[in-house]
Design a binder for these strands. Structure first.
Lengths: 135, 135
DNA sequence: TATAATTTTGTAATCATTTCAATTTTGAAA
DNA sequence: TTTCAAAATTGAAATGATTACAAAATTATA
């Protein structure tokens, strides 16, 4: 996705684009590997040397609040982010830590109809176990 | 649940009982409020003054590894624990932070049949949103 | 009882995240 | 273009959860 498209993508989510925001969103859209803040920062600093880690934190909080990214709490160590906001689940291998996407059939998603006293904003489905390589 | 029953409960999970382990498990079984390590420690120290927070960490890691408790990563701040290991989901209010149990109809649980290259150990379903009080 | 293994404890270290004030950038108005 | 205010970025310091580790205490075993 080129810069203009990322720019527009941010605008669509009511986020004022800046050089840093575009770079971070572009990174997320091109790296669907559920990176942590540190991974994003470490990968972007070489091409954007003035980038501050605080900016990465600020920016991802903003993206999350605007629902432009998914925040994954699947890992107790650090939060991971996913630029793919479509409906899907995640699997984490307890041994090597890798996080994989798991497609969810629409019928497989737990419903929330019977809780009128709770306003649902997001549903997170995590599978934990062992991947083939670690078995 | 009395001490003998908690003792047996630990044995059933292949956990060697100790005074601390029994106290912590009893606390978890009697407080299904998804407490954090700090909450458990703070509540138990008055009745067990020599208790160390490290012991609470060690013990809950052990319980989790033995699948005697559920660990909730629903909160990016800290891990929460649930002595109820039966199949259920959780809701967290983004405003006040309260974590509630959500019963899940068996049919509502996403299946994992189509992933023979992944060994599934646990499924976590989190709903995030706003509770009635905060609306 | 003596000894070994396990568990508990407290301190110090680690590391992700937040706070905060200063600096820089942006955008609008003159 | 210049000026000014608001917004965004930055870096350093603080916070707070968790882990590492070694000593002390407890428990199990010979």
């Amino acid at each position: 996705m080129n810069i203009q498209e990322v720019h527009q993508h941010l605008m669509n989510h009511d986020i004022k684009p800046s050089v840093q925001r575009v770079a971070i969103m572009q990174y997320l859209l091109e790296h669907l590997t559920h990176p942590t803040i540190d991974q994003i920062y470490t990968d972007l600093v070489p091409v954007m040397p003035t980038l501050s880690k605080t900016t990465v934190y600020n920016t991802l909080k903003l993206f999350y609040d605007k629902k432009a990214v998914i925040a994954l709490f699947i890992d107790e160590k650090n939060v991971r982010y996913d630029g793919d906001t479509s409906n899907h689940a995640h699997f984490r291998c307890k041994k090597c830590g890798i996080v994989r996407d798991i497609p969810i059939e629409k019928t497989g998603i737990p419903s929330f109809k019977d809780n009128p006293d709770l306003h649902l904003e997001e549903t997170q489905i995590y599978f934990l176990g062992t991947c083939k390589q670690c078995m």
